[in-house]
Simulated assay, not measured.
Amino acid sequence: MSWGTVSIGRMTLRETVTAEESVHATTGERTVRLAGQESAPPLTEDQLLDRHAGLLGLHGALVQATFTDKSSLDGFYGVTDASAQLVDHQGEMQACTWTLSLRRIGSLGEADLESRLTGIRRANDFALSGESWHAPAIGHQAYYTGSSVASSMTRSTADGTITVYRSLAAGANPRWACPPASYLLGRARFISGSLEKTGTNQPLPTTGWELSNGLVRVTPGGSGTIVVAAWGGSAWETKNWSISDGTTITAWDGLSLLRNDVEHVIVRLVREQGPGEAGRIVLDLGLRRGSRFVEGYLQRSASATLSAFLTASETTTNNAASGYVVATSNDADGNRYTAGSARSFTNHANGGVSKAAVTALDFYLGVVFNGGSAVSGDAATDLRNQYIGALPEVTAGVRR
């Protein structure tokens, strides 16, 4: 007998025979309780420990679930309870016995996903109103923003073609449907040691990681650099960026996950300030589903000149007075780098963002895909406006 699989969120687990369903006597909510076991072997120890941590990380999440054998249960769920027991038989065999309690939201025909775009656009020094935009999962259906219809464009990702909706009306909370099997396409994701992580509470090394949404990929480079790559249709096209607090940072001491949702992932890198100095340097990097740029926030305990700049200099058109800089000419891949900030800054000599005598610097690093021939929505000013106008997003499952 071969076991099927159940995919829950980012995780794929062995599907067991039983799924226990019940209906709450007061609320009428339908729930499903799943139980199973993962073991090493056949998994490696790292894979087993990752699944153990990931199962616990599912608690409170909105997830899609698809089953090999019990496909009638395919749909969207809220994870109300998660437990995982790790057993080590003196190194000969390890096992993780788990249970999940799921509140059923509904199948494709029963449920919508509501993207709650809350908060305000970024305050800025350039009198910019920005552009409110949103990118649901690849394969979504029936996108609805009320009486005001948003314009749209498409971008080619490593997962397929994603639709980006532009110029959303103020206060819009888009609703859309999605086949559960398509929900992860185009997602923001964090990978460490070749394993995609679920949740935020697990130890992470400062090397061997990847932050990606299929359009942009961020990885650690040598000597503390950050490698930002753009998907070119068949391969990743890279630029190396350096981070400085007056002295270029050559290594990072710690890495953690602040947020890990399919619509938005944020990681934090930490570096001690230096010999004889109290405090630390903190760099947060965030990537949204459908975005062509990574967002950064650099902080230091004491004021200094903070910078994010190209490791290898490029000729730059300096539009810092308007909130962005951009390469003057296309590179060998036919693209142009771009960077900017919501606050006043100066162009770094190599190309990038720099500001003196501050304790914090917000910035974005991105690519103008197809350079001088970029389509509307991908030009340097469009990306600047999308950075200013990006709103916090939380996805909720709602019955139709």
Results as ranks from 00 to 15, higher is better:
Trp98Glu: 06
Trp98His: 07
Trp98Phe: 14
Trp98Asp: 06
Thr99Ile: 10
Leu100Thr: 10
Ser101His: 01
Ser101Asp: 12
Ser101Gly: 15
Leu102Asp: 00
Leu102Cys: 05
Arg103Met: 03
Arg103Gly: 01
Arg104Glu: 06
Arg104Trp: 01
Arg104His: 03
Arg104Ser: 03
Ile105Trp: 09
Ile105Phe: 13
Ile105Glu: 09
Gly106Ser: 11
Gly106Gln: 07
Gly106Ile: 08
Ser107Arg: 08
Ser107Ala: 13
Gly109Thr: 13
Gly109Asp: 15
Gly109Gln: 15
Glu110Phe: 02
Glu110Asp: 13
Glu110Ser: 15
Glu110Ile: 05
Leu113Cys: 05
Glu114Gly: 00
Glu114Ser: 03
Ser115Cys: 02
Ser115Pro: 11
Arg116Thr: 04
Arg116Met: 01
Arg116Ile: 06
Arg116Asp: 03
Leu117Ala: 07
Leu117Gln: 02
Leu117Val: 01
Thr118Glu: 02
Gly119Arg: 00
Gly119Pro: 01
Ile120Gln: 12
Ile120Asn: 13
Ile120Thr: 14
Arg121Phe: 00
Arg122Trp: 00
Arg122Gly: 00
Asn124His: 01
Asp125Ser: 06
Asp125Lys: 06
Phe126Gln: 15
Phe126Lys: 14
Ala127Trp: 03
Leu128Gly: 08
Leu128Cys: 11
Leu128Asn: 11
Leu128Glu: 14
Ser129Asn: 15
Ser129His: 07
Ser129Val: 15
Gly130Met: 10
Gly130Thr: 06
Ser132Gln: 13
Ser132Met: 13
Ser132Tyr: 09
Trp133Asn: 05
His134Pro: 01
His134Tyr: 14
Ala135Cys: 06
Ala135Glu: 07
Ala137Asn: 01
Ile138Ser: 02
His140Lys: 07
Gln141Asp: 09
Ala142Ile: 06
Ala142Val: 06
Tyr143His: 12
Tyr143Gln: 11
Tyr144Thr: 15
Tyr144Phe: 13
Thr145Asp: 05
Thr145Phe: 04
Thr145Trp: 00
Thr145Cys: 10
Thr145Gly: 09
Gly146Phe: 01
Val149Gly: 03
Ala150Tyr: 12
Ser151Glu: 06
Ser151Lys: 05
Ser151Trp: 02
Ser152Lys: 03
Ser152Ile: 00
Ser152Gln: 13
Met153Lys: 13
Thr154Pro: 07
Ser156Cys: 10
Ser156Glu: 10
Ala158Cys: 07
Gly160Gln: 12
Thr161Tyr: 10
Thr161Asp: 14
Ile162Phe: 04
Ile162Ser: 09
Ile162Asp: 14
Val164Asn: 02
Tyr165Gln: 12
Arg166Trp: 09
Arg166Met: 15
Arg166Pro: 15
Arg166Val: 15
Ser167Gln: 13
Leu168Cys: 04
Leu168Ser: 03
Ala169Gly: 15
Ala170Phe: 03
Gly171Cys: 11
Gly171Trp: 05
Gly171Glu: 03
Ala172Trp: 02
Ala172Cys: 10
Ala172Met: 08
Pro174Ala: 05
Pro174Cys: 00
Trp176Val: 09
Ala177Ile: 11
Ala177Asn: 14
Ala177Gln: 14
Cys178Met: 12
Pro179Val: 03
Pro179Gly: 05
